[in-house]
Design a protein around this nucleic acid. Structure first.
Length: 373
DNA sequence: TCTTATGATTAATC
DNA sequence: GATTAATCATAAGA
């Protein structure tokens, strides 16, 4: 081990005699062997000694050739295997996160993302509340905050990644003076660093997605709060209900039409009719709130045109609307709803229901669609 | 604060 | 899948 070292030292650090003309064969092999020995020996020496040898080695005429050979060997062995493993497909999880962030308007260009998402959320929940613009702006603001934090963090990560990459590259370049470092190795190192940072980025994306989901669910929960329909919407629904009292089951088309008119969803229309039917029936059944305050009404107990008895509720509605409004006519001409029948069989269809009737308590334009339980 | 009205949800039924 | 009936949760009014 010492011998080659001494040989090199004998030639002098920096003061090497002109190298013998490079010949193929034995002398060259010996030369390479010597250099290798010296490199190995450096680890066993003190820093000062090593430093001196390093310099000597750096100036050795064979160094570039040796490094090239060593780089080639390195590439052919470990690196080639590793590099083939490194070509991983794009992580589907990362893709999902990216897509979600894009869809939510957190990543990508700012396109009023918050409002778009808020609008989508509103559409999904189906509610048209009077203060939804406030909720939208609230959602927008929160989303903008998330977006801001996300981008700031992302920028920080990218900056740190770049700094670290540059640092490592410089280090490797520096090291390449004393050990064989192939460009591919540097590339691989950069790749490793980028992967490490992208895994951190993935965490950032994940937590951003979570934040958006929480915000979204909160927003939707808030929207799920009961909001009374607008006066006009209730009017439209009541109008339909009382004008189809004999069969208050709107078809899909009718529901669609009503939903459009009222600015609510079809399922809200269904809900409304479900509630309306049951509550109307209940109240008719109990008679309670529909009872006329003034007894001895001329209509009370009168047989209907179809032979049914006018219920107090119907009488009340008659009082309100006979001869006026869109349904007065129908009421006057048509049959009247019989609560007795409904009580008897509990079903709407089976009950002798009129084709047209008024609200028991109020006109079709009434804001209050039904009465309390 | 209490009561009532009303939109939504849920389980059962058809 | 639509509807009923019961119930919940909350807005609105007294």
């Amino acid at each position: 081990m010492d011998e080659p070292g001494r040989l090199l030292q004998a030639r002098g650090a920096g003061g090497l005699p002109p190298p013998p003309p490079s010949e193929p064969g034995e002398p060259r092999k010996r030369d390479l062997g010597e250099i290798l020995q010296q490199i190995m020996a450096i680890t066993d020496q003190s820093l000062d000694e090593a430093q001196a040898k390093k310099h000597a080695l750096n100036c050795h005429r064979m160094k570039p050739a040796l490094f090239t050979v060593l780089c080639e060997i390195k590439e052919k062995t470990g690196l080639s295997i590793r590099s083939s493993q490194e070509e991983e497909p794009v992580d589907p999880q990362l893709m999902r996160l990216d897509n979600m962030l894009l869809a939510e308007g957190v990543a990508g260009p700012e396109k009023g993302g918050g409002s778009a998402a808020a609008a989508a959320a509103a559409a999904a929940s189906g509610g048209v509340s009077p203060d939804n613009s406030i909720e939208h702006s609230d959602y927008r603001n929160k989303l903008a905050q998330i977006r801001q934090i996300y981008h700031a963090e992302l920028e920080k990560y990218e900056q740190a990644c770049n700094e670290f990459t540059t640092h490592v590259m410089n280090l490797l370049r520096e090291q390449s003076r004393t050990r064989p470092v192939a460009p591919k190795e540097i590339e691989r190192m950069v790749g490793i660093i980028h992967r490490k940072f992208s895994s951190i980025q993935m965490q950032l994306k994940q937590s951003t997605c979570e934040a958006v989901m929480i915000l979204r669910s909160r927003f939707l929960d808030a929207r799920r709060k009961r909001r009374n329909f607008s006066k006009q919407a209730t009017e439209v629904l009541n109008e339909y209900f009382y004008s189809h009292l004999s069969n208050p089951y709107p078809s899909e088309e009718a529901k669609e039409e009503l939903a459009k008119k009222c600015g609510i969803t079809i399922s809200q229309v269904s809900n409304w009719f479900g509630n309306k039917r049951i509550r109307y029936k209940k109240n008719i059944g109990s008679g309670g709130s529909f009872n006329l305050s003034g007894s001895g009404d001329v209509f009370l107990g009168l047989p209907g045109l179809n032979g049914d008895t006018y219920p107090p509720a119907q009488v009340e509605s008659l009082r309100h609307s006979m001869g006026q409004g869109p349904y007065g006519e129908g009421l006057a001409a048509g049959q009247l709803y019989s609560p007795r029948d409904m009580r008897a069989n509990g079903g709407w269809q089976e009950a002798a229901t009129p084709s047209s009737a008024m609200s028991p308590t109020e006109g079709p334009g009434s804001v209050h669609s039904d009465t309390s339980n």
